[in-house]
Design a protein around this nucleic acid. Structure first.
Lengths: 181, 181
DNA sequence: GAAACTGTACCGTCTAGACGGTATATTAAC
DNA sequence: GTTAATATACCGTCTAGACGGTACAGTTTC
């Protein structure tokens, strides 16, 4: 069994993604992590500290993902789009943490810290995409497409009927090749 | 002065966008709308009814926007991207309502209704974009770029340095023209 | 005179966080 | 080498405050 601290963060992510920020109470997180409320507060002294812990995890995983994206066999763009897409069941790793953090992106209290963490992740991804695409506008375009997919994953909006991510990838490849002329 | 009902919905939007869903209490909405709590509850019998009222407004404005997008001088794509972009100060109209509703898109209670409303708006936009772009993959691509901009607006993530929406638009025009061959 | 409010007082529920307690492992004292 | 002290990792309960919603009597607007 994973450490209690990790289990708490996992449960926090799950609750954020599946039931939204409103459903996230300390009691609910503790119950989902199979930890007592006292135990939870031992590891994270407050709800804000819990959020800060998730941001730390996001930064860690984003940094670790930077290596994966650079060494992806199909290239950064394909990797980025595939991991952003709603299909493929429950996302894991950075994507999961990223989606959970998006749910925290209110304008409230620690909202500033959330925005800064998201900005770092986006900047990392942009840098990784630029390794494949020298043209910054094209890299930005590719990233925005991926972000659009993220938004759909976040809201649960279905894909247009008859289309899937591979169609999109194929077209993106053509667009990007043509753009590098 | 606008009708109290409209002022309540305006205040609700503002609170959602500027301070997040957590800050939205009935008291806060009433105060921001310069309406008594009793008056608020006269128009919207519960918090759920208030959310439902915002979804109604979103559907109305989305339908009204369908006309605007079709008759946009630069074409649907340019219109969609420009109104999605974070720049240009506080957004108004559909964009504003859409961003507010995104903040409601938790996995909770009325989350199902929210997702359905967002799906309708997205389907409307997709249909409008397809009037300019016969190829569904290209239309989807254009929409995803716009949605990526929405996500940035939502999270307040800054644009990549040295780039703006017009750079993106110019590149999109080239991509889309090349794609229609 | 009805519709559209205002203003206030109140209730029940939920929640964050405080707090005190427990079990065990490690270290220090003698 | 055993006793004492300390640190770590929790558990379970309690409380003060916030929030949604009710109730209702009065006031303005048309």
């Amino acid at each position: 069994m994973a450490s209690a601290r990790d289990r708490v963060l996992d449960a926090y992510e799950t609750l954020l993604i599946d039931h939204g920020a409103a459903a996230v109470t300390l009691d609910a997180v503790a119950a989902a992590a199979a930890v007592s409320k006292g135990g939870l507060l031992y590891h994270f002294a407050s709800k804000d500290a819990l959020a800060a812990g998730l941001l730390d995890r996001l930064r860690e995983r984003s940094a670790a993902d930077a290596d994966a994206i650079r060494s992806a066999p199909d290239g950064p763009v394909a990797y980025y789009l595939r991991t952003s897409a709603p299909g493929g069941g429950v996302p894991g790793g950075v994507t999961r943490t990223y989606l959970a953090v998006l749910r925290l992106a209110d304008g409230t209290t620690s909202g500033q810290a959330v925005r800064e963490a998201l900005a770092v992740v986006d900047a990392d991804a942009f840098a990784a995409l630029r390794e494949e695409l020298a043209d910054p506008v094209l890299a930005w375009l590719a990233q925005l497409v991926g972000d659009g997919l993220y938004l759909r994953t976040l809201t649960g909006t279905p894909l247009p009927p008859g289309l899937d991510v591979e169609d999109l990838l194929e077209r993106m490849r053509r667009v990007l090749l043509a753009g590098t002329d």
